Amino acid sequence: MPSTVYFADLRASLKRPFNQKLDELMERVGLESRIRPGAQTAIKIHFGERGNTAFIRPVLARRFAEAVKRAGGKPFFTDCNTLYVGSRAEAVGHLHTAVENGFAYSVIGAPLIIADGLRGASEAAVRVDLPQCELAYIGAEIASAEALISLAHFKGHEVAGFGGTIKNLGMGCASRRGKLFQHSNISPTIRAERCIACGQCVRRCPGLAIRLVKRGPDMPPAPAGSEKPELCAVKDAEKCIGCGDCILTCPQSAIEIAWDAQIPQFMRRMAAYTKGVLAGKERTSVFFNFITNVSPTCDCYPFQDAPIVQDIGVVASDDPVAIDQASVDLVNRALGLSHSCLKNSHHSGGDKFRDIHPKIDWELQLESCEEIGLGLREYELVTI
């Protein structure tokens, strides 16, 4: 039997404002019935990188916090820190960015909690027992929550093809170690030509995997301003635990992620992490995709390109696979915008995501999640 996905377009009137349609979506998908009185309820949302404006509007997010309160639950908005160095790489900057982007308590009506702690190391190891992943490292506060609401901004993505519910959960709820595992087959690398031998990474490394050594003849010279030009940081890959803390610590951006994971492996790992996020919450989770400002790439950039299609609406489901499949289909059925980065798929039915990311097979993330029993690609779209 196909899963049900509820859809609300953006048409509104004085008699039926859009907020009312959001309330009806929540009612149809049974949001309040999934939250018992007193339940700590994580509302997973992307707060947007500083400079990006494509994320879900805070005033709309507030509606979901109000629904949780009506059910007697205790809502909090949450996300995990990023793996890359940006305005959300650690909790203090993350919270500042969220507030600057409008996610203040006075607007959204619930507190903000960064789920993986100050520097991305507060995590829970959730057993998933899959070939590609035995343990999923999830932000501790998301793992501890009793109920979960995913609010995802649906858009393109440079590694996953598109980003929706699956990415919002599988990637977004992972700690720094979990994000690094999904993205890379090996631990971060140190670029000797950038290293100034300040020693900060050595002091911060919890695995004692980094040390300063004398620069050899086969190493590039130290950059100008090096504190100890005769030295350079090197890493022992066998000792590295993959936490990614050194990436954030380095003031020279000399430590980088090795973006070498093949796409199929990345998709399977992200699917496994989605299973880990939902473990124990299968009956207390619900998912929403906002198909608005459908930008070509992730909200993690400090900008956003022009949307590839016009704003479409919001979908809701209790099936994370069906909701993403329906969202892809709704985007692909729409006419592409002429002023966007689309090249060949402006027509209705054209594959917009393969057009903007031709090397990425976006279907793999849906297939991977369906294979491990997270949901169905077959769905019935019910328009409210």
Rank of each mutant, 00 (worst) to 15 (best):
Q262N: 12
K235Y: 05
I263S: 13
C246R: 04
A261G: 04
C250K: 04
Q252Y: 07
P229Y: 04
D245K: 07
I257K: 00
C250E: 01
P223L: 09
C240S: 07
E238M: 11
M267Q: 15
Q265Y: 09
P229K: 01
P223D: 11
V234W: 03
G242H: 04
W259Y: 14
K239M: 13
G244A: 14
C250H: 04
D260Q: 00
M219K: 09
A224M: 11
I263R: 05
D260S: 03
Q262K: 09
C232T: 15
I263F: 11
E238K: 10
L231Q: 11
V234H: 04
G242T: 01
M267W: 03
I255V: 07
A258V: 15
K228C: 04
E230C: 03
C240D: 12
A224N: 06
S226H: 08
A258H: 04
C250Q: 00
C250R: 00
E230G: 05
G244D: 09
C232Q: 06
D236Q: 05
I263H: 08
I247N: 04
C246H: 10
W259H: 11
I257W: 02
Q262L: 11
I263W: 07
Q262F: 02
S253C: 06
P251D: 10
S253P: 02
P221I: 09
A233T: 12
Q252V: 08
A254H: 02
P251L: 04
L231N: 01
G244C: 05
M267N: 06
P264A: 10
E238I: 10
W259T: 00
K239L: 15
F266S: 10
A258C: 14
P264C: 08
P220T: 05
C243S: 10
L248Y: 00
D236S: 10
I241V: 14
P251R: 07
F266L: 13
G225A: 06
G242V: 00
P223M: 06
G244H: 07
C243P: 10
Q265C: 03
C246P: 06
L231R: 02
E238D: 13
P220C: 08
P264R: 02
E227L: 14
T249G: 01
C246W: 02
E227P: 00
P251T: 05
A224W: 06
F266E: 04
L248F: 07
A254T: 00
C243L: 09
C232G: 01
T249E: 15
G225Q: 00
L248S: 09
M219R: 03
P251Y: 01
C243Q: 02
A237G: 01
G242D: 00
S226R: 08
C246M: 07
F266M: 01
E256H: 09
I257E: 01
E230T: 08
K235A: 14
C250S: 02
I255L: 11
P221E: 08
V234Y: 01
P223S: 04
C250G: 10
